[in-house]
Each structure stands twice: as C-alpha cells, then as structure tokens.
C-alpha cells in the first residue's frame, strides 16, 4: 500500500507499484489535466509537483511517491487563478493547449526558486517542455510577467 497526498487529499494505492504516477492520476483518480506526451520524460507534458518540485510524472513510479505531496494543475490554486495561470491567460499563450498544464507546472516550480529570471534562466528551466504549436515566445513573456507580479 502506497500512501500519498494529491492536491491535499490523502490517497492510498495498492496496484502495481511500477505504475507511473501519470497513469494513477489520469486513469485512477481521473485528474486528466496532467497530460501524456511521450512516456519517457522527454516532453514535459506530464509535469506535476512532488513536494513542490517539478517532476515528470510519466517516469515517476508509484513506489517513489509514497508519503509525497503531489500537486497537479487542478490543485495549483485554491482560490481563483495562480499568478502564473493569470499571466498565461493575459499573454494568450496556448494554441492547442495540450502541453500547457505541464508548462505552467514547470514555470510555477521554477519561479519559486528564481524570482527575477533572465532569458537564459527561462530557457534553461523550460527546455524540457515541448510545445509543438510553438508558443515559446509567449511562454517567456508570461513567465517574465508572473515574475514581475510576485517580486
């Protein structure tokens, strides 16, 4: 039995402990905001927070998240929008939108550690998150706007 918290709610899991967190979130808990993109930690679409840090849930086996606090896009803000979500909306970032939950989760974790990121900082932090529609320049602008808000 693996006990964990997902968006503040205590959960226990007794299935295959090798199952990646992604599929537990999506197929078991029906938290579908976290997306499947590659299954190999190559694209970032599945990014969630484990104890506040961004991880790729598609390669995080359930046995590695016992006792962890997991936060998904659905749990990022309890009252209205998170500043990063707001910045994303203001910059009109998404096109198809499929990767954006992962992008936002990556950006939220990143901005906790970097208050005033440079372009290089942003590129470094976000290079693991692919957007096939090509919204990168808006992602960069939204991250800067959100950083400005929080500082």
């Amino acid at each position: 039995m693996i006990d964990l918290k997902v968006n503040g709610v205590a959960r226990s899991f007794d299935g295959d402990s090798n199952m990646p967190l992604l599929w537990y979130l999506r197929d078991v808990l029906a938290l579908t905001g976290t997306k499947f993109g590659c299954g190999e930690a190559l694209c970032g679409a599945c990014t969630v927070h484990k104890n506040g840090e961004a991880i790729r849930s598609c390669v995080a086996a359930m046995r590695t998240v016992g006792g962890a606090e997991i936060t998904t896009i659905e749990g990022i803000s309890h009252d209205g929008l998170h500043p990063v979500q707001k910045a994303w909306i203001d910059a009109n970032v998404p096109q198809c939108g499929y990767c954006q939950a992962g992008q936002i989760m990556q950006a939220v974790a990143f901005l906790k550690s970097k208050k005033n990121p440079t372009d290089d900082d942003i590129d470094g932090a976000m290079a693991g998150n692919i957007c096939r529609c090509g919204t990168y320049q808006r992602i960069r602008a939204a991250i800067k706007a959100a950083a400005g808000e929080q500082s």
């Binding site: 938290l31 579908t32 905001g33 976290t34 997306k35 499947f36 998904t72 896009i73 659905e74 929008l81 979500q85 994303w88 909306i89 009109n92 970032v93 998404p94 939108g97 499929y98 954006q100 939950a101 936002i104």
Partner: peptide, 14 residues
Amino acid sequence: DLDAICTGRAEYGM
C-alpha cells in the same frame, strides 16, 4: 477555451 486550458479542465481526446 483559454481559461479551461490554463486550469487543466479542457477536455481533449486523451
């Protein structure tokens, strides 16, 4: 669909 996308509520085929 902007708000739904940014909050993870948008529904894709997946």
